[in-house]
């Protein structure tokens, strides 16, 4: 992991859905080093702590990164005020472990809500060998469907209320996909409850699975130890650190609270 702190130009800013913003940042040095599953730590004007946001897509030729975030509280609200043409202060690329992609040929790629953006960089690697399942609350929250389609992947859209795509959870769609396909691996990012069920399904079907986790962060680089998550390491319970040991973990390492 090689990272820096710097201020970079926001080339474009779009609104994808209510309170969901899409920034393209010109940062050739960061883009050159960045890998799918890693994140950037964004300075929010007036706040003590940086906000971790996943890398959505990496364009090494243009030297750009794309990040997508939802306004959840005061800090992301402040970030939403950043204008096209202004500078964004980031520490990046962070995350000692992103998604491991190399050894796999076919994949099911699953995003839940604001967990969808990091899955785009994964889908771009697999192209037509990927199946993307995206879940959202309702039609108004749906993002990135054209981008996922453009990768060549088969895409399945689910909403909780059926207002777009099919009604139901991503886990229902996953079970159906697995009736006809046996992918090398399942990648997922989204709420803990969703990840937990996906891990169960992957296990029951004997398929490898990697998940991206979230935890509140301080330094973002592995020094302060605040971003602990419960894992199993060498048979013992170990509090790993999402920023340095993750944010992506193998399914069998992760322990969820009862």
């Amino acid at each position: 992991m090689k990272y820096t702190q710097g201020k970079y130009l926001i080339l474009s800013k779009k609104t994808l859905a209510k309170e969901i913003y899409d920034l393209t940042i010109l940062c050739p040095d960061v883009a050159a080093a960045a890998k799918p599953g890693q994140f950037v730590n964004v300075k929010a004007d007036g706040f003590m702590l940086r906000r971790p946001i996943s890398i959505c897509s990496i364009d090494k030729n243009k030297g750009t990164l794309r990040i997508i975030f939802e306004v959840r509280g005061e800090g992301t609200k402040a970030m939403s005020q950043l204008a096209e043409g202004s500078m964004i202060d980031i520490v990046a690329p962070l995350g000692g472990r992103g998604f491991k992609l190399e050894q796999y040929e076919t994949a099911v790629i699953i995003g839940g809500g604001i967990g969808n953006p990091p899955m785009l960089a994964v889908a771009e690697k697999f192209g037509a060998n990927g199946t993307v399942i995206s879940g959202f609350r309702n039609a108004a929250a749906v993002i990135l469907q054209d981008d996922f389609k453009a990768t060549g992947a088969e895409t399945i859209l689910c909403t909780d209320d059926g207002s777009a795509g099919r009604k139901g959870f991503v886990t229902d769609a996953l079970k159906e996909v697995l009736e006809t396909k046996k992918p090398d691996i399942i990648y997922a990012c989204g709420p803990d409850v969703m990840l937990r069920r996906i891990i169960e399904i992957a296990k029951a079907n004997g398929i490898k699975c990697q998940v991206s986790l979230e935890e509140r962060m301080g330094c973002g680089v592995g020094a302060c130890l605040v971003c602990a998550c419960r894992t199993i390491r060498n048979g013992d319970e170990y509090y790993a650190h999402v920023c340095k040991d993750g944010p992506v973990f193998n399914a069998e390492e992760v322990l969820f609270d009862e």
Partner: peptide, 22 residues
């Protein structure tokens, strides 16, 4: 091993931590 997460909370101009000497 330290304390269970969450171990950090932001405050006005500061932060709380409860790492617990991991």
């Amino acid at each position: 091993n330290g304390n269970l997460p969450p171990r950090i909370a932001e405050t006005p101009s500061g932060m709380l931590n409860s790492v617990g000497l991991q």
